[in-house]
């Protein structure tokens, strides 16, 4: 084979060739597979037809319920009187009065203890003397 050249050789056949018996079997196998595929397609079409019906019904129901859901979700701004009413509804007036009293007494105590000039002015009734005092 020292001078082997493909184009000078007689045409070489492929090493693998199918026998006629095999081809007959293959024909039957292929036709049977095609029939199965056709059956699968038909079954799929039938099953999806049912699904489409349900899907269409679901779409109609969802579309019809959109306005209802929208209305229930709409929030309105409360008026000022409503806010006031709501705030006053749970107020304990006794506690408020007590807190205000405490605050006032604190103010008074603080002024008495921290400002001697003011204390003097409050205690001394002779205002004229204070004004003219050199």
């Amino acid at each position: 084979m020292k001078d082997f050249k493909l184009d000078t050789q007689p045409k070489i056949k492929p090493a693998f060739e199918a026998s006629d018996t095999y081809l007959d079997q293959l024909q039957k196998q292929v036709v049977s597979s095609i029939q199965q595929e056709k059956n699968k397609k038909a079954a799929f079409r039938i099953s999806t037809r049912g699904i489409w019906r349900y899907a269409a019904a679901a779409v109609v129901v969802i579309a019809a319920s959109i306005p209802i859901v929208n209305n229930s979700l709409v929030t309105t701004e409360p008026t000022s009187s409503e806010i006031e009413h709501e705030l006053l509804r749970n107020v304990d007036f006794g506690s408020v009065a007590f807190a205000l009293d405490n605050e006032l007494s604190l103010v008074t105590t603080e002024s008495e203890s921290t400002d001697p000039v003011e204390n003097e002015l409050l205690e001394n009734t002779n205002v004229e003397f204070l004004i003219t005092e050199p």
């Binding site: 492929p14 693998f16 060739e17 199918a18 095999y22 081809l23 293959l26 024909q27």
Partner: peptide
């Protein structure tokens, strides 16, 4: 289905050799 049988008969041998 008949066409597929014909397709196998016409090209089966060549395709078999090609794939194999």
């Amino acid at each position: 289905e008949r066409a597929f049988a014909l397709l196998v008969k016409t090209y089966g041998k060549r395709l078999y050799a090609h794939i194999r």
